[in-house]
């Protein structure tokens, strides 16, 4: 991910965040809708989106499903104590498994030995257990211990409220 993004693009990106936080309207020409509100031409809007995506400020432009409503009510946070020497290579492999949505290295702390986190999803308990086993097979002897933390309740889930945070500053 490149860090180079011009100041004017930065400002436009902020506008875009606020504008699309709740999603774009489901119309045939969403970029025209966006262009009008950004006070840009459609071509300039498309070029801006492309630049922001190329520099990594936008990860992707997507139709983001609500997995929970699609029946994926089971999610397991699998955590692994992986040999530091092999974690980068193995982390890439685990992150690329099609059922893993997030895969991060995090620090070991006192009372917490696991340094690799991979979030798995499924329609039932058996499915996430099966996915966990597939990860275990990939890690092999480089993994000394693991566990899976299954969520029993969502207590809060909101999108980022950057606009609100900015206003408070």
């Amino acid at each position: 991910m490149s860090a180079s993004i011009s100041r004017s693009d930065q400002q436009l990106a902020q506008q875009l965040i606020t504008l699309t936080e709740a999603g774009m309207p489901l119309v045939a020409d969403p970029w025209a809708w966006m262009a009008e509100r950004m006070n840009l031409s459609v071509d300039d809007t498309l070029a801006l989106l492309q630049r922001l995506q190329d520099t990594g400020a936008i990860r992707r432009i997507a139709a983001v499903p609500n997995h929970y409503r699609l029946g994926y009510t089971f999610n397991g946070m699998t955590v692994w104590d992986v040999d530091d020497e092999h974690i980068d290579r193995l982390g890439e492999i685990v992150g690329n498994l099609h059922f893993v949505s997030h895969c991060y290295r995090r620090p070991r702390l006192e009372g917490w030995r696991y340094n690799l986190f991979a979030m798995v999803h499924g329609l039932n308990a058996e499915q996430i257990e099966y996915e966990r086993n597939l990860i275990r097979n990939q890690l092999g002897d480089a993994c000394r211990a693991d566990t899976m933390l299954v969520s029993t309740r969502i207590l809060k889930k909101t999108g980022l409220r950057l606009a609100a945070q900015r206003q408070e500053k």
């Binding site: 965040i17 999603g23 432009i61 983001v64 609500n66």
Partner: peptide, 10 residues
């Protein structure tokens, strides 16, 4: 079933 359609920011 759709969370939103739009850019996902880093």
């Amino acid at each position: 079933a759709l969370s939103r359609v739009g850019p996902v920011f880093e």
